[in-house]
Design a protein around this nucleic acid. Structure first.
Lengths: 249, 249
DNA sequence: AATAGTTAAACATTAGACCAATAGTCCTCC
DNA sequence: GGAGGACTATTGGTCTAATGTTTAACTATT
């Protein structure tokens, strides 16, 4: 009894994209390198330029390359970032596959651990940076955007300190999503919480007190979560939507 | 002094994609609906067919639509899944932006909490399902693939029970990445750990014992992490690569 | 020396044609 | 009357060729 393999029907552009992706991942092309021009690729792969372009768009959306127009332009390999992670989170959120409480509870789970690790791995260099952040946070803010920038900074730096790049990417992505949510739901309010609210966390990290850092972050995350949930309920009331049930970890 | 706004230069296909995406997110097109054909969209947007196609490829890659060929084919809106999340994780991994220890440590952080929540939210219906899983795990396995399938099942169901769709998506994505890593690094070994190893976790969840469930999962995650790290080191030795330093949470 | 114009390389977009897959219709031949 | 096959229309997939746009480097002019 012969067993036939099903014909896999793939798009030309997908095969091209796959080969290029492998080339990049294998190190044949490194960050900063320029891929061959569309016309060269077209000859090499023996496909039309349209196919090459679709493949390049795919790689671009995946975050592997960027394309520049004009002379000395082309497709350049770039360092893969966690941009895609952020987009994936954001899309899930926009499509109502994730709610604000669910988002906040995940942050509540992750961020205290990040603070704990940061306290354990803190270096003198980062101590200085954290001190600068404390000063920044005490200054009066001008706009919501600036405010979020500063508030974001503390979490981001802690994530960098924690020594786990995966956690770092997760935290930074979650922060960006949170930011987008705030901007959409509450674009007019200047600030939702008093200045210097990260002080207890940051100070504990600087001291190297892991337990205290985790506990302070936990408190902060809970408080922040409450604010977010309230904010959303008010928003939904304004729009006449159903309010949703609270959920806690 | 007049202030000019810089000309925003966006690709045609991106604008088309953006408008279509908004239409989908706003509910104008729902899951299962068919978007207009490429030729219709081309007339409506007043752009070329190539531009429309690039936009559709983007939406397809983002997980919003799928395209079918032939008569009564076209671009159909589908339910957004966490597929993208998985790809984002996997790409970061393939590009060496995430290591196995980092991955395992994140799982070690998340999964015990999932087990705890599952124990708190367990229903009779899921109790039955978990009992079935226990039976399945006791059976002898035939292939690595089947083995992973079964092992994966327990984690996945717990994630479903936990009541936080974001956590569920994260856990399932992390599992898929883990699976890919195992398949790449250790394609020949049948099983890495004894059958029925999820029993303590699942039983605790069925009992509704949150603390015990979390603790059992923690133990399992640590054990599993050790195995993964060993497996990788052996793999790297075989290939003559540098071994990497252990890292723990 | 600074500015303005020119050119060439590369991506961006368009138009039109043809191929391939698929569902429905119709038609012929038992 | 029914089954199988041929035909057709629709729709995505791909290709070719031409033109537009952007950019950097070069050149000429004042």
């Amino acid at each position: 009894m012969l067993k036939f393999k099903p014909i896999k029907q793939t798009r030309v552009s997908e095969e091209v994209a796959e080969q290029l992706k492998q080339s990049i991942l294998s190190g044949e092309f490194r960050s900063g390198d320029k891929l061959p021009s569309e016309r060269e690729l077209m000859e090499e792969f023996q496909v039309s330029r349209v196919a090459v372009r679709e493949a390049l768009r795919f790689l671009e959306k995946s975050g592997f390359i960027e394309t520049r127009q004009g002379a000395s332009g082309g497709a350049f390999v770039i360092e893969l970032s966690f941009e895609n992670l952020t987009h994936a989170f954001l899309d899930l959120f926009l499509a109502d596959k994730i709610s604000i409480p669910e988002l906040c509870n995940v942050r509540l789970l992750i961020e205290p651990e990040v603070a704990r690790l940061a306290a354990e791995n803190i270096t003198d260099e980062y101590k200085k940076k954290l001190n600068d952040i404390l000063e920044l946070e005490d200054e009066p803010v001008k706009s919501l955007s600036d405010d979020i920038d500063v508030k974001t900074l503390a979490h981001g730096v802690l994530a960098e300190i924690c020594g786990n790049r995966f956690l770092e990417a997760l935290v930074k992505s979650l922060m960006r999503v949170t930011r987008k949510v705030i901007e959409e739901v509450n674009p007019n309010t200047l600030s939702m919480h008093p200045a210097g609210m990260h002080r207890p966390i940051v100070e504990a990290v600087i001291r190297g007190d892991a337990e205290q850092a985790a506990e302070a972050m936990r408190k902060h995350a809970i408080e922040f979560g409450e604010i977010m949930i309230e904010m959303e309920q008010k928003y939904r009331e304004e729009l006449g939507l159903d309010t949703i049930k609270r959920q806690r970890v």
